[in-house]
Design a protein around this nucleic acid. Structure first.
Length: 420
RNA sequence: GUGAGUGUAGCUCAGUUGGUUAGAGUACUGGGCUGUGGUCCCAGGCGUCGAGGGUUCGAAUCCCUUCACUCACCCCA
């Protein structure tokens, strides 16, 4: 029989990585709920149209990276490549704009993009997604960045950089695009083929290019940051003041742009040098027009997504001290009668208990106990049965003690046992 | 989608200019120690050498095809 393996880019999350995922989830909930966010869960599958309209028709994600298929009834469906679109859909579908002035939501789960996998990039990957609807003021931009630093602090992530920029609003972007196209058109021959194509479709993205020629040209080009309208400039300046008050110290990167069309004004990325080519493990920004463009009222929004796989890569190994572990070793059929009663008694008192399903020699059971990091082994055989006791051995020191063989009192006695 | 690199035991990897029965470490199981783990010693099982085809008396080794993984590009969390 041929073995069946998981699909390319679809992985099992296990071992240390799984523990880190749980820590990310726990810390996320703790931090975000403190700031008034509530957790929601939204579908993985949506109508393709939702993503086309929110992310943008001409983005790479929509053009070539979505898992899209035709359903039995002819609808085009897509596995979500990011979470914001679905959260906006939820916001409108539940009419949250009519029920509360500000909505603070977060969600977590798998996302899907049909890309070639590499370090820190997979076809199914996981994000924690955080969104605020209904607040245009720069204080929430600052608050989000501050929450991010608290979260990374709590997860003991030390070496990272927060990059911030403003990409302006409609009012300042259209005139700027014309300037940009004018600038690059003069030097079109020097651009790489990709960027020659980008020039008319999405000129802002030329700044993302890694080809040396385009980087050189980009150094001299006009920047959106230098052509912000008055309101956008004021927003950004207030943001920097608030960031200082929060004690957040970002890097201002005038060249930072994002791959999704809906961003306005504040955009940011958190990067780590340990991640290889995909150095951003968190990214987000403001999207003041998205809700309206999705058919809702004019409601501003801002949010970010954390790439859990990438974050896990830069988290140090967890050293959470777990409770003491116990192991039950049995010799002989008579002793085996105590197995289930003892296991039940300890588990009911929340004491971690393991055993060998097929107890052979005591030696083999001791090896088993040792291999799983047991702190105390309880030994029960003929001798103990005769004396009416159970032996408890401290696996670190080798010292042993005797306790009465009485399942109703055993758990309590173990909890108060002092055995150096 | 493009490029490069790598596929040999559960894991990490040796394997000479093609040569007989493919190895080591680790892990696992058992024993030395008949009721006591870790250290030590001994023993044991394990492989369709990624898959398919070709060259050859003979292929893990050379050639072709294919698949998978990894890294990078594009782009992105």
């Amino acid at each position: 029989m041929e073995k069946i393996a998981s699909l390319r880019g679809f992985r099992d999350i296990s071992g240390e990585e799984a523990e880190k995922f749980v820590r990310i989830e726990l810390v996320s909930r703790a931090i975000f709920e403190l700031s008034g966010f509530r957790e929601i869960s939204i579908p993985i599958l949506e109508k393709t149209e939702l993503f086309k309209r929110s992310i943008g028709d001409t983005t790479d994600i929509v053009e070539k990276e979505m898992f899209t298929f035709i359903d039995r009834n002819g609808d085009s469906l897509t596995l979500r490549p990011e979470a914001t679109a679905g959260v906006v859909r939820h916001y409108l579908q539940e009419a949250l704009h009519a029920r509360e002035r500000i909505s603070r939501l977060f969600t977590m789960g798998p996302m899907f993009r049909h890309e070639r996998p590499q370090k820190g990039r997979f076809r199914q990957f996981h994000q924690v997604d955080v969104e605020i609807f209904g607040a245009a003021e720069p204080i929430v931009d600052a608050e989000l960045l501050w929450m991010i630093t608290r979260m990374l602090d709590r997860l003991a992530v030390k070496y990272y950089a927060i990059e911030v920029n403003s990409v302006g609003c409609k009012a300042c972007r259209e005139p700027f695009k014309e300037k940009l196209v004018a600038y690059f058109s003069e030097k079109k021959e020097a651009l790489c083929p990709d960027c020659q194509n980008r020039l008319y479709r999405n000129p802002l993205r030329i700044f993302d290019c890694k080809s040396q020629a385009c980087i050189e040209l980009g150094k001299e080009s006009p920047l959106i940051f230098d052509h912000l309208c008055e309101n956008c400039r004021a927003h950004f300046e207030t943001l920097t003041r608030y960031l200082a008050e929060f004690g957040v110290d970002p890097v201002f990167n005038k060249r930072l742009v994002r791959g999704l069309d809906y961003y306005t004004r504040t955009v940011f990325e958190v990067t780590s040098g340990e991640l290889g080519a995909q150095k951003a493990f968190l990214a987000g920004g403001r999207y003041d027009n998205l809700v309206e463009e999705m058919g809702g009222p004019s409601v501003p929004g801002i949010g970010f997504a954390i790439g859990m796989e990438r974050l896990a890569l830069i988290m140090s190994s967890s050293q959470i001290s777990k409770g003491l572990k116990y192991f039950l070793a049995l010799i002989g059929d008579k002793a085996a009668a105590y197995r289930i009663p003892v296991i039940k008694a300890l588990a009911e008192r929340d004491i971690p208990i393991s055993y060998s399903p097929n107890p052979k020699s005591l030696k083999s059971q001791m090896r088993h106990a040792d291999s799983i990091g047991t702190d105390y082994v309880m030994i029960l055989g003929e001798g103990e049965l005769e004396k009416g006791i159970i032996l408890v051995r401290n696996m670190r020191s080798g010292n042993q003690a005797e306790l009465p063989l009485d399942t109703t009192s055993l758990a309590g006695r173990l909890q108060t046992l002092v055995l150096e």
